[in-house]
Design a protein around this nucleic acid. Structure first.
Ligand code: MN
Ligand code: MN
Ligand code: ZN
Ligand code: ZN
Lengths: 141, 141
DNA sequence: TTGTAAACGAAAATCATTTTCATTTAGAAT
DNA sequence: ATTCTAAATGAAAATGATTTTCGTTTACAA
């Protein structure tokens, strides 16, 4: 996706187009993988003489708030973000080898919802689904 | 479920049947809700004059390793555990009001797996699904 | 009853994440 | 182009959950 798309979102939410934000977007947009704040920080330190880790955390949080990044859940309970501008509820496929993240729009939750509600007599309101495996590229290599 | 079931698992894995372990099992077995280590610690402090937080963390980890507790994922990225002895892959329904956790054995993942693998030409290996809503009791009250 | 590995508590360490606050900067207004 | 100001940032410290260390205690088998 074009960086301009993200710049427009920044403007829409009155977030300034700063060098740090631009670089984070550039790095994240160069690969479709998820990143930890520390990883991004390490990459940004190669380009900027001064760059604080809190800045990275802040920017990622803001990007999540304005809906251009999403986070994934890992066993280590740390924060991982990736670019995702889809607004409606959907899910993610994550390659366990290369960390690539792909959006999964298809999900027939109705069956499970129905089963849960019947068996437990409860109301299923939301669901979180994350799929892991090997992506096309990693399967081939 | 009877506490004896858990005591047998302790014995099977050569874990001693200590007062702290017994009490954690008793507390967790008294409600079908999830607990944070800190919550359990607070409850245990009422019964024991001396009880360290690391003990609670250690016991919960061990219980997870021997397959009598499982953990849930929350937005705050902290650890939450609940009693669950089901060995095979399944999912959980969590009541957002009372924190009750129910196991969900039904899941037709084949459809999504097929869709993902076709569209992304990837291999879907594992999936994590967590359902949130209101349980029977909380719906009624 | 005794021996011993396992369990435990206290204290400190670790480490990811957040807060504080003084300084700098993007971008709008002039 | 210059000025102004709220937003953005860095440095340092704080926070808070979780883990490690290590000396003492305990479960339980012999
Ligand atoms: Mn879904
Ligand atoms: Mn499933
Ligand atoms: Zn891959
Ligand atoms: Zn409930």
């Amino acid at each position: 996706m074009s960086l301009d798309h993200y710049f427009i979102q920044l403007a829409n939410h009155k977030l300034k187009k700063t060098p740090k934000r631009i670089e984070i977007l550039r790095v994240m947009n160069s690969k479709n993988t998820y990143f930890s704040p520390q990883e991004l920080w390490a990459m940004l330190k190669e380009k900027f003489q001064k760059i604080g880790l809190p800045t990275v955390y802040r920017i990622l949080q803001q990007f999540q708030e304005i809906g251009i990044v999403a986070s994934i859940q890992k066993e280590d309970n740390q924060l991982y973000y990736f670019l995702c501008s889809i607004k409606h509820s959907h899910h993610h496929f994550i390659c366990r080898k290369c960390k690539k993240v792909s959006c999964v729009e298809y999900c027939d939750f109705e069956q499970i919802k129905k089963s849960v509600e019947e068996q437990l007599q409860s109301k299923a309101e939301t669901h979180f689904l994350q799929i892991e495996g090997l992506c096309k590229d990693c399967l081939e290599s």
